[in-house]
Amino acid sequence: MLWRYIFFRVLMLIPVSFSISVVIFMIVHLLPGDPIDNLIRVGSSPDDRAALITKYGLDQPLAIQYLRWIGAMFQGDFGEAIVLRRPVADLIAQNLPYSLALGGLAFAFSSIVGIILGTISATTRSKIVEQFMRGFILLGSTVPGFWLALLMILFFAVQLQWFPVSGAGGWSALVLPVLTIGFGGVALVARVTRVALLDVKREDFVMLLHAKGLPSYKILFGHLMPHALLPVVTILALRIGWILGGAVTVEFVFGRPGLGSLLIRALGQRDYPVVQGCLLMLALAVMLGTLIGDVAQAAMDPRIREAKT
């Protein structure tokens, strides 16, 4: 049954990706400005400009340009960057590992720490711990990343000199960026976990379990958590796409390459093929995340898979 559900969901991705590719292409091409102005330099003639527009096919109707792009994509060809002068696939391949390392670690960190903190705050009876958790969650969801990044650098890299200020040389350079991004994620995951646990705690069956004399930890891990983790898994799955592109400001402050930074640079220069390639990657990651989330939910809860197939 689960396999049928997965198959159906994967099949749905095809029309969705197709529509997304149209939207991405249109948005990118309708932006004011064009890449050629970022390519020509003082000394080149007005004719050079016209020749470049023809060379990159920018004088063709948008529909033709789109079909050319999507046609090449079907053959696995992301195209050639106009301003950045490299194959788009190469550029993405160069930046992807940095994004995966940073985003992946931040994701793991915020998931694990978030669930632990959320659980503690939902189960504790200490007012101080609860107040502290509330404050932490509020701070974590509101502090802007670039500001936290600078604070982290000032304290841990400049004052204590435990970690390098910036760069991507080795594991030590990953610590501060991971903590910076993870901080917001921890707060989010902790909040969702806390709310979900508190909801489940109020259910009748929990009272029954207590009445049966089951130890609290058994109730928590054996009965509360499986229920409460459903919404947490959904939130986490949605954040998978964000692993790839959600770290732009933090990448900027810490001087790290990454898909987000590549996208922003290419967008500023209107390097259409690169922007399209990056956006499509991000969209695919989000879709994949949603898919994983749905499948995980279906696997955990038979009601979902029956309702949806």
């Binding site: 600078l150 650098i153 000032l154 890299a157 400049v158 000199q161 390098p164 200020v165 910036s166 760069g167 900027f252 402050v253 810490f254 001087g255 390459p257 930074s261």
Partner: peptide, 16 residues
């Protein structure tokens, strides 16, 4: 390549 000017300054200050 350090895009953020503040970070670049802190790198200079700390010897990076």
């Amino acid at each position: 390549e350090i895009p953020d000017q503040s970070t670049a300054f802190l790198e200079l200050k700390t010897g990076g």
